[in-house]
Amino acid sequence: MSLAQHTPSPAQQRRAAYRRRQTIRSVLVAASSTAALGTLLVLAVTGAPGWDRVRESFLDPGIARDALPAVLSGLWLNIRLLVCCAAGALLLGLLIALLRTLRGPVFFPVRALAAGYTYTFRGLPLIIVLYVLTLGVPGLRLQGMPSVLVLGGLALVLTYGGYLAEVFRAGIESIHPSQLAAARSLGLTYRQTMRHVVLPQAVRRVAPPLLNDVVALQKDVGLVSLAGPIDAVRAAQISTAETFNYTPYILAGVLFVLMAIPLIAVTDWVTLRSARRQSGG
């Protein structure tokens, strides 16, 4: 019985024909309902009494073109900050998660500090951390004080490190104890077990939520502009103040979405892949 030789029975041929008809039907239904909803939305927005006024103040192509260079150079700051802060927060999160899994009385203060850190920085609003670090700390007038940009980045790393630490910890704790027993029974030390058996599996398992937090970080890096550095949103705000037209904001928003799409796509792909792996496919 090879696959190639099999001829479908009349019953199977009827079933296949029925399924084909059903598929065509559902594609047609989806297309027409999408078209109907789209038309309704366009009519509702453009037919609104204030539409012309809104279009002028939010969707002016000329103003968008003028604001583009400033907004783009702001966006470049966002990108650089994102890369540095994401790397820093991931490293810090992993370190804190590992410290929280250490056992033994010697490590009690380390464990307590790590736990205190995650509790504090997950509870503290990011804006307050930013103000304290970028406005408060420079006030100390210490030698070798880093720039406001670095301090702002530090605030982001500290805040997001707290969230990422908990994601990493959840991953570490999700590894079944039998994996640890197997590793230890081979003579691997606790550190070797973590390094070669637990962490590789844990990181793979929590990659989707980790990336999701990085997507959120992407939007929050712009908050450093509260302390002075000009990011994309701040640049848009400046050109808005010059022209009394809100189009630069829309421009910045569109650019943010475009920048997020690759990262979100990677997140979805990783999620899908790990779901497939777990189902043994």
């Binding site: 039998s178 994996q179 027993a181 197997a182 590793a183 029974s185 058996v197 590789p200 599996q201 793979r204």
Partner: peptide, 13 residues
Amino acid sequence: IGMVFQSYNLFPH
């Protein structure tokens, strides 16, 4: 000492 478990406990990664 070598140990073998009921549920194999191979490292899946």
